[in-house]
Computed example of a mutant assay.
Amino acid sequence: KAFNTVIQSLFKGNNGRDALNLYREMTEVDKGFIPEFSSFRMLADGLLNLGMDDYLISAIELIAEKANFRESDVSAIRGYLRIRKFYDALATFGRLLDINNPRWTYR
């Protein structure tokens, strides 16, 4: 919960890049851990509110690729992202994260 408070504070200060970097570090996205969707959703909302759509797309792409989701699921997410339907992409992404145990690790 303290982590979420720090992320929210960074967004209030319009520090979206710092929030994204902290999120990556805290959830160890690059080291193989899938983040909990509730935290990711907070990050996504903050990035969208700051107009940092490309950063959100990069974060979703990174996790989807590393989590080894089925190609058909990733295609659906990418389709929504291409047409800028971010909340539809997030709904699909959240469903995939919830299907997999949030503590599950990927290769």
Rank of each mutant, 00 (worst) to 15 (best):
L43Q: 10
G51P: 06
R82I: 04
N21G: 00
N21Q: 11
R107Q: 14
L97P: 07
K85P: 02
K85S: 14
S38P: 00
D30I: 00
G16V: 00
T27M: 04
I63L: 05
L56W: 06
R84N: 11
E28K: 06
R107C: 07
A59S: 13
L96Y: 11
L20P: 00
M42Q: 15
I99R: 07
D30S: 08
G13I: 03
G16H: 03
V6D: 04
F3R: 13
Y55W: 12
I63P: 01
I63A: 00
E25Q: 13
F11A: 03
W104Y: 08
P35K: 07
A44E: 01
I34L: 15
Y23H: 11
R70G: 01
F93R: 08
R78A: 08
I7N: 00
R70S: 06
F33H: 13
G32S: 10
F40Q: 05
N101G: 06
N4F: 02
S39R: 09
L56N: 08
K1V: 08
D53N: 09
G79I: 02
M42W: 02
I77E: 05
E65C: 01
P35C: 05
N49C: 01
S38R: 08
G94K: 03
G13P: 00
N68D: 11
E65P: 00
F40V: 09
R84E: 15
V29E: 09
G79Y: 08
A64Y: 06
L90Q: 12
W104C: 08
R107G: 12
G16T: 02
F69H: 05
T5P: 01
S38W: 01
F11E: 02
R70M: 10
K66F: 10
Y55F: 11
R95N: 13
R82G: 02
D73F: 06
G46T: 02
S75K: 12
V29Y: 06
R95E: 12
I77H: 01
G79W: 07
A19N: 02
D54T: 13
T27K: 11
K66L: 13
E71C: 00
I63Q: 01
R41M: 11
A19P: 01
I83S: 11
L81P: 07
E65T: 15
D54Y: 08
N100G: 07
R41V: 09
A44M: 03
V6L: 15
I63K: 02
L56D: 05
L62D: 15
S39G: 13
S75A: 06
R70P: 01
Y55R: 13
A19M: 03
A19Y: 02
Q8F: 03
D30E: 14
L48I: 14
R41D: 14
S58M: 14
T27V: 03
Y87T: 10
D73G: 04
L96W: 07
L48V: 09
F93Q: 04
A67I: 05
L62Y: 11
D53H: 15
N100S: 06
D30W: 01
M26N: 11
T27A: 04
E36P: 00
R17F: 03
E71M: 05
D53C: 03
N101L: 04
R84M: 05
N14A: 10
I57Q: 08
P35E: 01
